[in-house]
Amino acid sequence: MKVIIDTSSLLSLVRYYLPFDQNTILYDFVKSEVSNGNLIIIDAVFEECEYTTQGLVLKSLDYLTDKEFKKNFKLPIRTKDLLPPSSKKFYNLLNHNFRTPLSRRLNDAEFEERKKEFLETADARMIILALIKKSANEEIAIVTEETETGNDHKAFKKIPALCKILDIKVMALPDLLKVYQGIAIEFK
Rank of each mutant, 00 (worst) to 15 (best):
A130R: 07
A122G: 07
E148M: 06
N95R: 13
P101H: 12
A155M: 07
K115R: 14
K133W: 04
E145K: 06
N151F: 08
N97G: 08
N95S: 15
K133A: 04
S103Q: 12
F90C: 03
K88L: 09
E148T: 09
E145Y: 02
T100Q: 06
L119I: 09
E120D: 14
E139P: 02
R99G: 09
N137M: 08
T100S: 08
E113W: 04
V143L: 03
A122S: 10
H96E: 14
E113M: 12
A122M: 02
F156P: 00
N97D: 15
R99Q: 15
P85M: 13
R125I: 08
E145F: 01
R114A: 15
K115C: 02
I142Y: 02
K89F: 10
P85D: 10
I127L: 06
I142V: 05
E139A: 12
N137S: 10
T100E: 03
R99E: 13
E110R: 14
R114Q: 14
T149W: 10
K154W: 09
A122D: 06
D152N: 09
D108N: 14
K158I: 06
R114P: 00
S87H: 04
E112I: 04
K116M: 07
T121V: 09
T121E: 07
F111W: 14
L106Y: 15
D108Y: 13
L119A: 13
R105Y: 05
K154Q: 12
T121Y: 01
A155Q: 11
A109S: 14
F111G: 08
R99C: 06
E117L: 04
R125S: 05
I128S: 02
F118Q: 11
R105N: 14
R114D: 10
L129R: 02
K116A: 13
E117I: 12
I140Q: 11
D152Y: 03
I132W: 03
S87F: 03
T100D: 11
I128D: 02
E113R: 13
N137W: 03
G150V: 08
F90G: 02
K154E: 11
I140V: 15
K133H: 02
F156R: 06
S135A: 12
K157M: 12
E117F: 09
R104G: 09
S87K: 09
F90I: 00
L102F: 11
K134I: 05
F90D: 01
E110H: 12
I128T: 01
L94N: 08
I132D: 04
D108T: 12
K115L: 01
K154Y: 13
T147E: 14
V143Y: 03
I140G: 09
G150E: 13
A124G: 00
L119Q: 13
S103E: 12
A122E: 07
E117M: 11
A109L: 14
L129D: 00
N137E: 13
